[in-house]
Design a protein around this nucleic acid. Structure first.
Lengths: 191, 191
DNA sequence: GTCTATACCTGGATAGAC
DNA sequence: GTCTATCCAGGTATAGAC
């Protein structure tokens, strides 16, 4: 991995752990093993490097989600698999945590990947839910867009609860609750 | 409002807007109109003042929630009223946002009010759901604790989605989804 | 209780040598 | 491409006068 790459990866980790305000160029340099001049050679400054790091985190989130979404089986199973997928729960969501950072949200460039990620995720889930409704897996009364929003919110909120409790268990419980609520709308064998 | 009080209120606002790392003693002093010496007379330092501010935000959250929880009517209506209560959506949750702050979570004193608030909230909702199940309002298959976790998570995650989208609409949609999912488990007239 | 002065460290960046 | 020197603002706190 070359220097530029190590800078991006280190920035990604620090942004995840400490957010934008809590991450200093010096900290990024130390973690990556790059010097001062090296960082400013590859990037114009903190916002520029942060943009590269955030974009990559956003991209990765989408790729990982798509693995579950486009898998085999009934849509309800795919959605459940996505919800229950293994996660670094106590670290939180690398993209979602950025919404709490005023310096990220007030910069249109830094904000865009965050906004696009959640727009895509909610939309993708809504499409799957609509599909499930169309093929009879799901109750016709379920609103795909609203339900998708609720599911994404459960994950994001689950991270908050787990971090507050200091235990991944709180996340798992919230997901269990969501799966349980969804189960009431699943049609079994021509109901 | 005396100086001490103004310091706490200013710290509360700034913690809400910018988090712990993003809030400097100087900024608190400027917003409150108190001088340097004045702040250090009333509080030992930033963590001490933050503890007073966080404790108050936690207390207020509980009081406001309890208004809906202990109101009149069926428990499902009370829970729905709580979920749909008017909120400063784009500002986010003053307590939940602190879970993203490593300096808060690594300090046991600052962390305690955050942990206690969500433990209380989830527990309170679970009690209400159990009550609804016992009196026949809700499907007996619903797990009160897990469902409570999901509902609290929807709110916390709803804030994240709304901030990402830059619009309160995303929060409303997630809540709609949760209410819709819950509706499938409500028993109507001896079902 | 509140003020000003002072101290020391870190944040974020530029300049120019190698 | 990378290094070191340097810069100025801001963060956080203490000391002592009023």
């Amino acid at each position: 991995m070359d220097t530029r790459e190590r800078l991006i990866e280190s920035a990604r980790e620090l942004l995840w752990e400490r957010g934008y305000v809590g991450t200093s160029p010096k900290a990024i340099q130390e973690r990556s093993g790059a010097g001062q001049g090296s960082m400013y050679h590859h990037f114009h400054g903190k916002p520029d490097l942060a943009l590269a790091a955030i974009s990559r985190s956003a991209e990765e989130l989408r790729e990982r989600a798509e693995v579950q979404f486009s898998g085999p089986g009934p849509v309800v199973d795919r959605i459940t698999a996505y919800l229950r997928r293994e996660r670094d729960v106590l670290k939180g969501c690398p993209v979602g945590r950025l919404t709490q950072d005023p310096d990220v949200m007030s910069d249109p460039d830094l904000r865009r990947p965050v906004a696009e990620t959640f727009a895509w995720l909610t939309d993708r889930l809504a499409t799957l839910l609509a599909e499930g409704r169309a093929n009879g897996e799901l109750d016709a009364r379920l609103d795909p867009a609203a339900t998708a929003g609720a599911l994404v919110a459960v994950l994001q909120g689950g991270y908050v609860l787990a971090r507050a409790a200091g235990s991944p268990e709180a996340f798992a419980q919230a997901v269990d609750g969501a799966v349980g609520l969804l189960a009431g709308h699943v049609r079994r064998g021509g109901e």
